[in-house]
Structure formats: structure tokens, C-alpha cells
Nucleic acid binder design. Structure first.
Lengths: 149, 149
DNA sequence: GGAGCTAATTAGCACTGCTAACTATTATGC
DNA sequence: GCATAATAGTTAGCAGTGCTAATTAGCTCC
């Protein structure tokens, strides 16, 4: 069950690892999507709400944070706005910009979703050895750096 | 705030790790999707083709391998079939079943895609330290086990 | 003040997942 | 042996998420 000690090759081939990692990432991401069903908000809405919880942002800023194009973010914000989880405010200094902020209802649903969303993964992770958890923790940071560009 | 980041975190909190890992996985999977653009086949078609390269399968088997429902697999197989990358054969022993196998053209496009698809990730991975690669390798196996069910 | 840039939106396409409903075939049961 | 149930696959339609192209509105600079 534990993949902690790999008695494999002393050197990790980049292309072999790439295939392994790709498979692992795609499989886990699909699983996360599946396990998130039954929630009030969608995955995309969730991460945006999480960002807004730290303070209001313009649409462009949100799009960049999520690495999506502006139209994609417009749609997500529209959905959140329609549910009353965020509100738009015009910027008096720049009429082109729109500030988006989370509403109290949005904060509530965020807190709810936050626990549900990571429930499956947290449970899996809790069942691992301390060593495996450490490996995953380090890997998470490496992957985030790699994907950041 | 984060007691987890120290050179030797005594204990990794499962819920903190879950959030970290989720973010890392979703971000990397999105990046992989983006980097795969410009290819002949879609990500879903790619993995199916890869499975078929090891031998023909029924549609149901393919769906289970990919953890998707039968209709989703039908669509993927239709797309591959339309491009001439797979072929359907009726099972003489059970008229309900359809065996799907890869064609020579499919094998060609698979080999092509295989290098392109992991190119981005392989390049990133190649730039890491041996230690980081080992961490990712171990993490990949842990994640695959976790997501397998 | 007009040209050009930027922010946001709208419209429409593609991929991927799902459920529900339907057809065809095989297995079961009286 | 024929009716019923179960299984394999398909079709149709919905939802979520990403994209590009085009449009509108406001700001900037010459």
C-alpha cells in the first residue's frame, strides 16, 4: 500500500516521470471533480469565492489568478452574482473596471463548501503514513511551482 | 499562521495538505490540458488510444478503465473511429458486445501525441533536482493509489 | 478631439462528464 | 418455448469549463 520507499532506479527518467505524474494528476483531478458533486457551487465558483474572501478584486485580476481568460471569469462571476454570493461595484476612478466582492451569503456557502470539498481528499490523506503525507506535501509545492510558469 | 512550513514539519495536517494538493492537482491538470492543444487528438481520445495499444477492449471495459460512463466512452470511440484511429468488431459469441481495437493509423498518431503530450511536463521535470524528481515520482504513485478507490 | 489601448461583456464553439430513454441481444424462469 | 429480466451499446439532451472573435464603454495620449 505504501509507495514510500521506492527500490527502483537510482535516477528518475524525466519522460517516464512525466507520464506517471500526468496520469496521477488527471486521475486525481477527475476524482476530485466527481467527489465534489452535490454541492451548491461548482469547482470554478468555489476557487473564485475563496480568492474573494481575502478581499475584492477586479474581473481581470480574478481571471489572472485563475489563469483563465476574461470571458470565462465573466461567466463564473455571473453565476455567483445570480446566486447572491458576490456583488459588483463600479470603480469611480475607472469606469471600465468592476470590483467584485464576496457577500455574507457567499462567505457562508464558501465555509460550507470548503469542508465538503476537501472532505474526500482529506480522508484519503489522513489514512496515509506520515512519510507519505510529507512526500505529497512537498510534491504539491513542486507542482505548484512548475505549473505557475 | 502556517506551522507546516519548517524544514522539518513535525506533522502534516490532513486538511491543510488536502487543500494544497487539490490546488496543485487542479492547476497542473489545467496546465496539461492547455499545453496539449494543437494536437490531432483530444486528451480523452489519447488515453483511450493508449489503453487500446495494449490490446482490444470492449466499450464497457474501456469505460471502466477510464472511470467514465458508457455513453461518454461511446462518444470518444465514435470520434476515434471517425478519424480511422480505431475500429469496431462484433463479437460472434455475444452479439451485444463490440470489440474496439487500434488501427495502424491510430498507433502512429498515438506515438506522435505521446511525445508531444508529455513534452511540456517532461521539460519541467527535467529541470528539477534529482531529489524533487524522486519526490514527484513517489507522490505520483501515492496519488494513483488514492484515486484508484 | 480622434486614434488607440484596456476592461468587460456577449455570442458561439469545443471537450467532457452526466442521466434518461431506447434498441438489440442474451440469460432466466415458469 | 416463450415471456421477462438483465446486459451492452447507442442516442439525445443537459451542465460545466475552457477558448476566440467581436462589441461596447471608458481612459490615454498626441
Amino acid at each position: 500500500m505504501s509507495a514510500a520507499i521506492d527500490d527502483g532506479p537510482a535516477e528518475i527518467q524525466a519522460d517516464v516521470l512525466a507520464i506517471d505524474l500526468r496520469t496521477a494528476v488527471m486521475r486525481t483531478s477527475r476524482r476530485l471533480r466527481i467527489e465534489a458533486t452535490g454541492e451548491v457551487i461548482t469547482p470554478g465558483q468555489y476557487t473564485v469565492l475563496a480568492h474573494l474572501n481575502s478581499g475584492s478584486q477586479t474581473l481581470r485580476e480574478l481571471a489572472e489568478l485563475e489563469h483563465v481568460q476574461a470571458p470565462s471569469m465573466t461567466r463564473i462571476v455571473n453565476a455567483l452574482s445570480g446566486q447572491g454570493f458576490v456583488s459588483r461595484q463600479a470603480n469611480p476612478e475607472d469606469g471600465r473596471q468592476v470590483h467584485i466582492s464576496i457577500t455574507p451569503a457567499g462567505q457562508e456557502v464558501l465555509a460550507e463548501a470548503r469542508s465538503q470539498r476537501t472532505a474526500w481528499l482529506a480522508q484519503r490523506v489522513a489514512g496515509l503514513s506520515e512519510e507519505d503525507r510529507l512526500t505529497l506535501s512537498r510534491a504539491a509545492h513542486i507542482m505548484q511551482e512548475m505549473s505557475a510558469k
